[in-house]
């Protein structure tokens, strides 16, 4: 089995397992599966201008300056057309309600009124988006969603080339050393209970202290509050008393096989709901943790 089929089969199996334990998340999982599968395939297939790892300033990185602040990770010359052509059908398959708008967007891209490279060339992307929205009758949120889906394979591809630099950077901050995003989900291993944060934008995992809040770095070894589902001790959400944020955390995650923390997080969407009802904010928006 080539690596792509392997990853794809593993993803399908992971989603199957999550559905077994949390059937109520079926709609979310089935909506995002095509996008995640497509992202995995694209990240392997697309050819992007590689960032030379030696160009990263390691001391600035150790000082807390993520890669994205040292060099752009999304370039105008990236193969956006190829990505969009593959991503749009995947989104439509997952989100049939967006079918019409996405087809309009596809047409706009085909006839050149919408060139994603303009967005990534512009210092400030907002005017470009406004221009696009005016040119074709599509909701801003649909464009956002397309961009969000299109960026994932590029970020994933670039993050993999920087993996060695990232994992040896001694990074001890709560936000992602690669793309600067805050974590959407964390896992705590079972045998040696280290905490690993996961960035759902670029897919990077990094180890982080269990007594600090990733968002506001508050130290709280006296009391680290969290919630868990009775009978499902693995499903937890750690909260920070000072910045009032929560972080979905798979406690005592299994260590026998690789995991996709995003899929596991989708299976715990009920915890997102409950935390938000209690007035806590997620540390970041990961597309599947904001409901209305």
């Amino acid at each position: 089995m080539t690596d792509i089929e392997g990853a794809s089969a593993r993803l399908a199996r992971e989603i199957g397992n999550v559905l077994e334990r949390n059937p109520q998340s079926r709609n979310i999982l089935q909506a995002f599966e095509p996008i995640l599968q497509e992202k995995a395939r694209l990240a392997e297939r697309i050819v992007c201008k590689q960032i030379d790892p030696s160009a990263i300033d390691r001391s600035r990185l150790a000082g807390g300056i993520p890669v994205i602040r040292q060099t752009p990770l999304l370039l105008p010359e990236d193969p956006w057309e190829e990505i969009v052509r593959a991503v749009i059908p995947a989104i439509i398959q997952g989100f049939p309600a967006l079918r019409a708008e996405l087809l309009v967007l596809q047409k706009g891209i085909d006839d050149g009124t919408i060139r994603l490279s303009d967005f990534y060339r512009a210092q400030d992307g907002h005017p470009v988006l406004a221009r696009w929205a005016a040119a074709i009758v599509v909701r801003q949120v649909a464009i956002d969603f397309l961009l969000w889906a299109a960026e994932k394979p590029v970020l994933e591809n670039r993050r993999r080339t920087l993996q060695e630099v990232l994992s040896t950077s001694g990074w001890d901050r709560g936000y992602c050393p690669c793309c600067g995003e805050l974590p959407s989900v964390a896992v705590i291993h079972e045998k040696i209970p280290q905490r690993w944060l996961h960035c759902s934008r670029c897919g990077h995992d990094w180890r982080f202290s269990r007594t600090l809040c990733p968002c506001c770095a508050r130290e709280s070894q006296r009391e680290m509050p969290y919630f868990f589902v009775e009978g499902r001790e693995q499903e937890t959400a750690f909260i920070c008393a000072s910045c009032k944020r929560y972080l979905i955390t798979v406690n005592h995650i299994g260590d026998l096989e690789e995991h996709d923390p995003d899929v596991l997080a989708m299976g715990m969407a009920h915890l997102d709901l409950l935390m938000q009802q209690k007035g806590f904010l997620p540390m970041t928006v990961s597309a599947w943790n904001v409901f209305d």
């Binding site: 949390n22 059937p23 109520q24 998340s25 079926r26 709609n27 979310i28 909506a31 994205i68 990770l73 999304l74 989100f95 049939p96 309600a97 967006l98 967005f119 990534y120 512009a122 992307g125 988006l129 909701r139 801003q140 949120v141 956002d144 969603f145 961009l147 969000w148 960026e151 793309c179 600067g180 934008r201 969407a269 009920h270 915890l271 709901l273 409950l274 009802q277 928006v285 990961s286 597309a287 599947w288 904001v290 409901f291 209305d292």
Partner: peptide
């Protein structure tokens, strides 16, 4: 980074979140 994921909300994409809400 240019990404504007903040506005993305599941319900605006016609996703039926009934089962999750019921379970919660």
């Amino acid at each position: 980074t240019g990404a504007v994921g903040s506005g993305v909300a599941l319900s605006t994409f016609g996703l039926d979140l009934g089962p999750v809400r019921a379970y919660a």
